[in-house]
């Protein structure tokens, strides 16, 4: 079982969290002309990297906040967690 350090509540079991997908996907800017390909990339197309990956998780059974988690998809090691509004260096 994974343990995830919620930036609001502290170290908690993965049971309390819900996975929310890739945290690097950015919505095309509002009112900008977008091609079908750009929209497909935003809505459907995802990479499946091996190694470090930035993910969204929600602390559903805790503080109910969305957080970002930097996790290795191969080893499941968690390097860092961030609040959603936190800038990542």
């Amino acid at each position: 079982m994974l343990h995830i350090k919620c930036p609001h509540c502290g170290m908690r079991s993965q049971n309390e969290f819900s996975y929310g997908g890739d945290a690097t996907v950015k919505r095309p800017a509002l009112n900008k002309e977008v091609t079908d390909q750009e929209w497909d990339n935003f809505v459907y197309n995802r990479v499946s990297p091996r190694g470090k990956h930035l993910e969204l998780w929600q602390h559903l059974s805790g503080c109910r906040q969305w957080i970002k988690v930097e996790r290795d998809t191969a080893t499941h090691e968690i390097f860092n967690t961030y609040k959603t509004n936190e800038e990542i260096a």
Partner: peptide, 22 residues
């Protein structure tokens, strides 16, 4: 509940699950 209760002190609280129930 998966929380580490060794850390919990008087006048503290937490949200978690107990046998899957929030």
């Amino acid at each position: 509940c998966p929380f580490n209760f060794g850390e919990l002190e008087k006048n503290q609280c937490l949200n978690s699950t107990y046998n899957g129930m929030s």
